[in-house]
Amino acid sequence: MEDCAFCLPRIKPDIVLSDQLCYAIWTKQLPEGSAMVMPFAHRPTMFDLTPDEWSSTQRLLDEMKSLILRHHDPHGWNVGWNVGAIGGQSVFHAHCHLVPRYSDERYAGRGIRAWIKDPSNHPGADHRADSAADSAADHGAGHRAGRGASHASDHGAGRGVSHGAGHDAGHDAGHDAGHDASHDASHDASHRPGRGVSHGPGYDAGRVAGRVARHGASHGPGRGV
C-alpha cells in the first residue's frame, strides 16, 4: 500500500535482513538492539500471515537474534505482536517485535503482560479509584468541619459569660466598698481615746464590717451578667 510505512518502496532503505517473503529492521528505539520482522505483502495482522510467511518470520527472528548478540549482551528477550488498536497496534501492517532485555533496566523482570495484569488495568479500576478518592475527601472535609464547629462553640458567646462587665463591676465594687469600710472602721476604732494598738475591738469590728460590705457588693446587680 502506498500510504503504509512498512510497505515498499518506503521501507526499503531500513531493511537489514530479508528473504523473498519477509524482512527485518531495527526499530531505533530502546532497549538497544530492538528489531521487527514483517512480511513484504501488506497483512493487517499476524493472523493474516500465510504458512510460508510464518516460516519466513521464524527464520528471520533467529537471524536477527544472532545479529543482536554480535553487538549487545542481552539477558532476556520479549517477542510478540500487537494486534488491533486496543492491543496496541499503531501500524496496521503485521510486525513481530524482537526486544532484547537487560538486567540493569528499571523494569527488568517484567514481561509483556506485567502491566496488563496490573490491578489498575482491570475494567472499572478508574471508577473504584475515583470513588475511594471522593470518600477520602468527604471524610476529611467532615472531620475539618466538625473540628471547626467545636472550636467556634468553645470560643463563642456562651463561653466566658460570667466574665463580662457585670462580673468585673461587681468584683470592683465589692473590693472598693469592703476596703473603704474596713479602712474607715479600723482607723476610727484604733484612734479612740486611750487606745493606741491596732488589734483591739476596733480593729476586729473593722474587719467584720469590711467582709460584710464586700459580700454585699459582690452579690449585687453586677454579678452574673
Rank of each mutant, 00 (worst) to 15 (best):
P9D: 11
R128C: 13
T57V: 08
N78Q: 10
R147Q: 06
A108V: 12
P44E: 12
I86W: 13
L30M: 12
L67R: 12
G156Y: 03
H93S: 09
Y203G: 06
C4H: 11
L69W: 07
V197F: 06
L69G: 04
M64W: 00
G33S: 05
M36A: 01
D188W: 03
A85Q: 07
S198P: 03
E105A: 15
Y102I: 11
C22T: 01
I25K: 03
M64T: 02
S182W: 07
S66V: 04
D130I: 10
K117Q: 12
G109R: 11
K117N: 14
G146T: 03
A217S: 02
H187V: 00
S153L: 15
G160P: 04
W54L: 03
A35D: 01
A85K: 09
A129D: 11
V208C: 01
K65S: 13
R10F: 00
S150F: 10
H187W: 05
H155R: 01
S131E: 13
G216A: 11
H179Q: 14
D73I: 12
H187Y: 05
S55H: 02
S56P: 00
C4R: 08
H163R: 13
D62I: 07
G111A: 08
Y107G: 15
M1A: 15
S135W: 09
G88E: 07
I25C: 03
K117Y: 10
M38L: 14
L69V: 04
S18G: 08
S186D: 02
P193M: 05
G33V: 01
S186F: 00
H171N: 07
A125H: 05
D130Q: 07
D52Y: 01
G76V: 12
A85G: 05
I68A: 00
F6W: 04
G160V: 09
A217K: 00
D104F: 15
L60H: 05
H42E: 12
G158D: 14
G84R: 06
G200A: 04
R214F: 06
A125K: 05
E2T: 07
T57C: 07
A145K: 11
H122C: 09
D172W: 15
I86Q: 11
H179Y: 14
S186G: 12
H171W: 14
A149M: 00
D3P: 08
A169F: 09
S90W: 02
A185G: 02
V225Q: 03
G170K: 08
P221S: 02
W26F: 04
S135V: 13
S120E: 10
M64N: 01
C96Q: 12
G88P: 05
A169M: 10
L49Y: 01
A145V: 04
F40W: 15
G84F: 11
A94V: 02
